[in-house]
Amino acid sequence: MKILIYAEHREGKIRKITYENITLAKQLGQPFEVLVVGSDVDHFADEMAKYGAEKVVFYKNSAFAQYSPDGYAKVIAKAVQDRGADVLLMGATSTGKDLGPRVGAILNAAMATDCTKVELDGDDLKLLRPMYAGKVHASIRLTSPVKIVTVRPNVYSAAEAPASAQTETVDAEAADFKAVVKEIISGAQGKLDVTEADIIVSGGRGMKGPENWHLIEDLAGLLGAATGASRAAVDAGWRPHDEQVGQTGKTVSPSLYIAVGISGAIQHLAGMSSSKYIVAINKDPEAPIFKVADYGIVADLFEVVPRMIEELKSKN
């Protein structure tokens, strides 16, 4: 089974999920190559080698300096065919979700979105993917000759395994792009997205209003965490919707999820209960969030969080 890993990069940086997928491919023990599509991308080979990539293939064209879903999908599909790959591994990121189904449609290949487990089963793949935002897990098989799998970030941790990478460059054709990215508007400086964060500090209705969010931000800052929010907080207009965790927001699997003033509605729990460790801070001992929390403090968050900030500051 030959695996092709799509290297996701943005603004000159490889996204972490790429290294996670390299680690996954190594665990599966199958031959794999890493595909980089872009314009000025050669320097990525060394970074990929750090995680154990032995072959990196560049499909280059100056037109690829700009992202185009249709344009990128065509060249990825071409690369899958050129390399004779049986499996295309991508990240279940906004880019992977945008591109994967298109490559699938071009190659008549089925796709599994947002897998949390990828296992070898003879010469087939056994895949696990959460549905209903994690309320149930589906064990699935793709029966097409070529299979496309997007893997949820943070599920497989990237492990360094230095190798020396052979490289190959293909001058790829770029068809006329139908849709093209003209500009990237970065979020607040250094703002980490919840789907990629290792630690998330999330606030809910118990925060009482946006004016108190500095507590969430300060705590997150000290922990190098991303900030999240419950639907109640987003519906109230306290926080932007891209921070929302839950069934109508983002599904996350960080190492540590700190729920502050979040009661734990079923649609929120669905989105975060696969976190490795959960801390709940809530003054209501009956709050459902305590049913999934590894550690809880039943007390007023306006006393607990400032104390956490103070303790962490004194340690730094």
């Binding site: 093209v180 990215v181 003209k182 990237i184 997205d193």
Partner: peptide, 13 residues
């Protein structure tokens, strides 16, 4: 304008 992880993209078509 589309949302991507931690940023927005402006797309034309």
């Amino acid at each position: 304008e589309r949302e991507i992880d931690g940023a927005h993209e402006v797309v034309e078509c």
